[in-house]
Design a protein around this nucleic acid. Sequence first.
DNA 1: AAAGTAGTTGACGATCTGGTCAACTATGTT
DNA 2: AACATAGTTGACCAGATCGTCAACTACTTT
Lengths: 204, 204
Amino acid sequence: MGRVSDAKTRLMDAVADLIWTGSYGSTTIDHICEKAGVKKGSFYYFFDSKADLATAALDQEWQRRRPELDAIFSPTVPPMERLRRYYEYGYQIQAEMKAKCGHVLGCPLFALGSEISTQEGGLQKKVQEILNQKRKYLESAIRDAHAAGLIDAPDAEGKARTLFTYYQGQAMEARIQNNLDIFRDAIRGTYELLGVSAHAPALG
Amino acid sequence: MGRVSDAKTRLMDAVADLIWTGSYGSTTIDHICEKAGVKKGSFYYFFDSKADLATAALDQEWQRRRPELDAIFSPTVPPMERLRRYYEYGYQIQAEMKAKCGHVLGCPLFALGSEISTQEGGLQKKVQEILNQKRKYLESAIRDAHAAGLIDAPDAEGKARTLFTYYQGQAMEARIQNNLDIFRDAIRGTYELLGVSAHAPALG
DNA sequence: AAAGTAGTTGACGATCTGGTCAACTATGTT
DNA sequence: AACATAGTTGACCAGATCGTCAACTACTTT
């Protein structure tokens, strides 16, 4: 009953894009509304604040991306192959965005999480929550790889932490240097950390 | 001749503090002036813009910190000991800030660089410049360690890149999770990456 | 002490930003 | 057709923020 609209979704898409291509601080409610083609009154009909919208947007984005990650990290895929595909997938996204907007954008969660870490407690929690989920993909792949004797990693959780941190460091570095090559070579250091004899194929 | 003043320095100190404890975007010129005890007219007497001030502030901060890093990475100190001291030094700073403001703040350069990477070209360049300098400390320590047969790292520059990226990843993670332990354990992963048999002493 | 220079100040206008609201419109339900 | 409901709109306000300027002050030089 009542009117139907996709304005809510348009707002979430707009804020995600603006934050990623710019920053949380440089993204104003007016800009979001303009980009979404939505008047401010409607914005406040759906959301309480920018932080509220951003939180919802993160959730939406995560729900969208999850199936793709589930496929990449499917237990039916050999564990080391999962990692390879994950890095390939990440590189594709980065290359696409660089082509579209001229900048390597890195991981939106990390960039956002860092920026607002001392403010916006609710949003911060959502960021942490999703990051923790993402790490689990790595963890299970590592555990399976260890079980298969492909790598030596008795502490899968710790190893996943290390790998994840390193990967995020690369993503940040790539954004700061606006350098896509860092992403292309990302898997090398990972192989090194896993103690895999690396004749890592360059991606792309 | 003319009047003398330390307002310029006070402004640089204020902006550095506000950006680190908050973010670039949340730091307004009015806030900076208030914190520095300087009127806006004076701000514009010394600087053209927030980005201009921030650039100068980074430079000042870097010039101040350099002697301490030079001491830590002095060639007279055994190379692996340099690394240990560097991590200890980093941990001290983080612990201090956490005690002072309740938050782990990570690396100001990385946080700032990530936030403004798609804007503020001049400031961005300064960030990159300083990061490149910092990496050189690691590089020479690694090269010396390799020469001394303490580690196996024929490609010192690449190894330094890897280590640096990982360290920055940890700093970001610590900020995002507001978790000092990440910093305390930071050297472990580094030893792992260097292939050092790690009975890493916990810091602090 | 006169003059020149470096730095300070408060007041101001323009614009941006967050946030509100009553009136309105389009859809589904009975 | 009448009604209820979900969503839209434009106008509006208050305060924040940026940036400017002419007058002023404190110091140094000669």
